[in-house]
Structures are given as C-alpha cells and as structure tokens.
Simulated scan of single mutants.
Amino acid sequence: MSELILHQYADSPFSEKIRAIFGFKRLSYQSVDIPAIMPKPDLIALTGGYRRTPVMQRGADIYCDTALIAEVIEDHSPENPVFRAPGVAQAVAAARWTDSEFFRVCVGLVFQPAALAANPRFKDPGAAEAFVKDRAAFTEGSPGLAVPLPRAEAVFREHLRAMDQSLGCQNFLGGDTPDILDFSTWHLCWFVHRQEVLRSYFEGFTKVDAWLERMRDFSTAPVANTISSEDAIAIAKSSDPGKMENPQIDPALGIDQGAVVSVLPTDYGFQAVSGALVHVDDQVIVVAREDERAGHLQVHFPRYGFEISPAGDKQ
C-alpha cells in the first residue's frame, strides 16, 4: 500500500496536475475524495485551516500547494524525473507563471456564461449558488481568480500559439520527455478542453492537440486506490511526523524555533494555519500542530507564495 495520499476531487485542475505526475511516474498512491466546497472538516483536521485543493499526506506529514507536492513526489520517486537539469530553472519559473497567471486566464474562460450554462455542476440552482458563495468567501480580500473574458481569450490564444511553435520541434514543452512545465500547463489546458463548448479555442493548434493526447495518457494511468477521509485521519493519528535531520530557521525572519506562527498564502485563499515553527529555509516552511482527531502533525508549505507571521499579528 502506497504511503502517499492525495486529498482531491475529480474536477479540480490542480489535482489533475498531480494525478498526471503520478501517472507519468507510474507511481501508485491512495486517493481521498474531498468536497469541492466547504465545509471540509476532515481535510481541515489535517491542515489546520488550509483549504486549497489538492493536499498530499504521508503519515502525519501534510503537504500543501502543488509546487511543493510535486517536489515531494520527485524526492520519493526520482525515476522519470519532472525536474531535470540543465533547464530546471527556466521550467520552474515558467511553471510558476502558468500556475498563477495562466490559471486566472483559464478560470476566466471556464466561468464565462456559455461555459457555465453547459456545466452539469450548475444545472441545480441551489448547487450553483452554494458554489458561488463558497468561491466568494475563498477569494475574499484578493483580486479574484478570473481574468476578464476578452483579455483571457487573447492571452489564451497567444499562449497556445507559443506552445504550438515550441511543440513543432519536440514532443513536450520540456523536450523529448515532459517536465514540470508540461504538467503545470497540462492541467489548465485540461480544465478548458474538457468542456466541449470551449474546445473551439484549440482549433488550428495541431501541435498542441497532439501534445494534449500525449499528456492525457499519463492522466488516465490507473494508479490510485481510494480510501475514506476517516481512514486518512486514522493513518495520521497512528503515525509520527517525519524527523527533520537539520531543522533551521531563516534568521531574517526574526522568529524563534518553536514560536507559534501563522502561515498564509499571498495570492488568495487567505485561511491561515497556526502552529509551532519547526523549520523554514529558502524552499519550505514547516509548522507543528495538534488536532484532537488527527493527532500530532507537521504541515509543510513552499516558501514561495506563502508568508509567515507571529500568531495573532494582523494579516
């Protein structure tokens, strides 16, 4: 039985990114189906407040944000690497743009009126209202997730043109085999392409169409075993967090190890996680927290895209 547990739901684009990485690596994992909207009591028991999807669990260690999740999977299973020299710096930088700005472009397309009218999720007025209220609360205090439609359409077409040119001389954006940029781009193209009413945006981009088929092969690889959220919590409760070999604290923070801190995303989803600071360097933040149901946990975040402050400070 795999020790990696992915908390996700089927329609989640960022979950699709991680599902495809698992498929590419032919790496088995366990999957927990979580609700698309709040409340998510079992997930919050593990994260302490973080609600973005997906979350990955390994015993009593909880990993947030797909940028970090992808790196943890790579460390766990370095075969078929998605972070490859010599182009890793360029791929990571481009993937960050894709996961943030291009994501907002794709949200603008997917949530346009024509797409919403064709989306089964919004056929039930009550379900649609609940979803809208949930996302309003989720993005409160941020500029929002969606780029206005005219600009979204222009940026999307421009990016597909660039992709089509790149794919004219290679099978993947990363070269002969996919890298992290392919997976960060795939899940957003999947998010748009999976809706039939939006597929016209891809017309004329033949190299992109062929790339979509190649990437889809990874996405559909049957590597997951579904377990319940209660089972995942029981696994956390019965496990000890992994011991860090050399925990350290970035001295620039001016915060002591063990101090109670809040960790918050910098873009949207401003639901803070509080815990005792275990480790923070240029790459990761780790806090320890206790939960009545899940026990003693360590919650991990990437340093990029998250802020740390003493708990109780005004956010």
Rank of each mutant, 00 (worst) to 15 (best):
R58A: 01
G126N: 11
L160D: 00
S31A: 12
P251M: 11
D231W: 14
V155E: 04
D209L: 12
E213I: 12
D250H: 13
T139M: 12
P54G: 00
Q283L: 12
P310I: 09
V107Y: 04
P241D: 05
L6K: 04
G258N: 03
Q283G: 05
R51Y: 09
P125G: 03
Y9C: 01
H296C: 03
D282P: 08
I73F: 14
D124R: 05
D281G: 05
V287G: 01
Q112D: 07
P86M: 05
E158Q: 15
P310H: 13
F306N: 07
V192I: 08
S309P: 12
A60P: 05
A137R: 12
P125S: 04
S77Y: 15
T66C: 06
L116M: 15
E101L: 15
F111W: 14
R84W: 13
A130T: 05
C169M: 09
H300W: 13
S238Q: 14
N225W: 14
S228T: 15
A95Y: 08
R121T: 11
Q8F: 13
Q257R: 14
A85L: 15
G275S: 03
I73M: 10
C169V: 11
G168R: 01
P39R: 07
V88N: 07
A45F: 10
R303G: 03
Q112P: 10
P125Q: 03
P143Y: 15
L6Y: 09
L4I: 05
Q90H: 15
A162P: 06
D291A: 10
A67W: 15
A311P: 12
P265T: 03
G295N: 09
S309D: 08
P251E: 00
G168T: 09
A91I: 05
I18H: 05
A60M: 08
L116Q: 13
A94K: 14
A276N: 11
E71D: 12
A276G: 09
A118T: 02
F83H: 06
F306R: 07
Q271I: 12
Y268N: 05
